[in-house]
Every structure is written in C-alpha cells, then in structure tokens.
C-alpha cells in the first residue's frame, strides 16, 4: 500500500475517516459473515472454497444465494448467471461513484471497484456528496472498503470455524431463507415492486418442476415483466 501522506497526523487522514465511518457497519455484518460461513459448510463447500468465495465474489446476498443453490444442486452455468443477475445493481453504484474518481489512475480505479459493495457505496456516496471537492476522497473510499472487506473475511472465517461444530439438526439453513426475507422486504416499496415479488414467487412455485431448476430464471423474468407492466399501467 502507498504510504500515508504526511501533511497531517495519521489518524485525521481521510483513509482513517473512511475506516471510522465503516466500523459500525463492519461490526454489523459480522453475524452475516458467521451465518454465511456455517451455511457454506452445510451446503457442502470445502473450508477453503467457503473462505475464498468471500474474497472472490465479496457480495453477501449473492453468496447466500449461491450457497443455497449449491445445496439444491443447481448446475454451475445457472449459478454463474444468477450471480451476475443478482449483482447487476453494482453497475448503478459504479455509475454513481464514477464522476468522483475519474481523475485517478487505472490502478486506483481497479482497486476501488473491487471494494464497491452495497455497504461501502452507502457510506462513500454520502461522504462524496457532502464533500464533492475533497481532493482525497479516494483515500476515504479505500479506508471504508478495506474495513468492510476485513470484517467480512474475519466473520466468514469465524463461521467456517463454527460450522464444524454446529449440527444440521439446528435447521440453520432456514436462516438463509430468513436472510432473503430480510433482504427482500426493503426492496418492496410500491405496487410495481410488490407485483414483481408476488408474480416471481408464484411463478417459482408453478415452475418448480422445470429441468435444471430453470424455474428460478423463469420466475425472475416474469417478475421483472410484471414490475414493468404495473409501472406502465398505474
């Protein structure tokens, strides 16, 4: 890592401001990293694979979904497609932060893009919008992103450690379903999003028997369509 610029004392540097801003969030994601680690092992992933996913994919909801679909034995190509669709929202974050870091080198852009999670975006965009002229915004971004990254890796390791101990009879896989419910609730905020959720859910039930678990894609597709139609005609 590049050395911290010496213009002020170390802990007032924007890097540390980013670290401080993300510490509560990093602590907040610890339980989810723990649950993810436990579920990954119960789904049959090896310990190295479970840990590696947290740094290779580094996106909580996509990791929960991947682990659940692995447990159901869904084919790999469909898994990759699902990960892509679920993570497409990052393009919005990318679009949103891009103007703030246009002046940086390609190396900086490549590194910061890797750290652009839901939580990091929420924190840095607030800072960026409050201090659009700050010349060291990217250090804040780096501090925030690395803090969240560390919290996620450490809690994943903790979950993998616990996963060896926790028996399957605890029905802990149900906590993944509950996590999805918790993630879905705030996304349903009007009629079109409610229609998307209901139509996708019912389609998933009707299409449950489709080969290669294509029901998931069919359901997501009809859900998107339902959302768009309700938006258009209300």
């Amino acid at each position: 890592m590049k050395s911290v610029t010496p213009l002020t004392s170390t802990f007032t540097h924007p890097f540390w401001a980013g670290v401080r801003a993300c510490l509560p969030l990093a602590i907040g994601v610890l339980p989810f990293g723990l649950i993810y680690g436990v579920l990954a092992l119960q789904a049959g992933l090896s310990q190295p694979a479970a840990q590696a996913m947290s740094s290779i994919i580094f996106a909580g909801s996509a990791q929960f979904i991947t682990v659940e679909l692995v447990r159901q034995g869904i084919p790999g190509a469909l898994l990759v497609l699902t990960i892509l669709v679920v993570n497409l929202r990052h393009m919005l974050y990318s679009l949103s932060v891009a103007p703030h870091i246009q002046h940086l080198s390609r190396g900086w852009k490549a590194a910061l893009a890797y750290l652009l999670t839901d939580e990091a975006y929420a924190v840095i965009i607030t800072f960026f919008n409050n201090q659009p002229k700050s010349p060291q915004k990217h250090w804040y971004f780096l501090g925030a992103g690395l803090t969240l990254w560390s919290g996620w890796q450490i809690s994943t390791a903790g979950g993998i450690f616990l996963g060896v101990v926790i028996p399957a009879s605890w029905s802990l896989e149900f906590s993944a379903t509950l996590m999805f419910i918790a993630l879905a609730a705030p996304t349903i905020k009007n009629k079109p999003t409610l229609a998307a959720a209901l139509v996708a859910g019912v389609t998933a039930l009707l299409a449950f028997g489709l080969p290669l678990k294509l029901g998931l894609l069919a359901a997501a597709g009809t859900g998107l369509l339902a959302g768009a139609l309700v938006e258009r005609f209300t």
Binding site: S61, I65, E68, T82, V85, V86, L88, R89, T177, F180, I181, L183, A184, T187, I188, P192, T193, L194, A196, A197, L198, V199, A200, G201, T203, A204, G215, L216, A219, A220, G223, L224, A226, G227, A228
Partner: peptide, 10 residues
C-alpha cells in the same frame, strides 16, 4: 425489480 423478483423466487 431484480432484487424483489429473484429473492421471492427463492
């Protein structure tokens, strides 16, 4: 519409 659709499909 991706998050509500994909999540409830699961």
């Amino acid at each position: 519409y991706v998050p509500p659709a994909v999540l409830s499909a699961i």
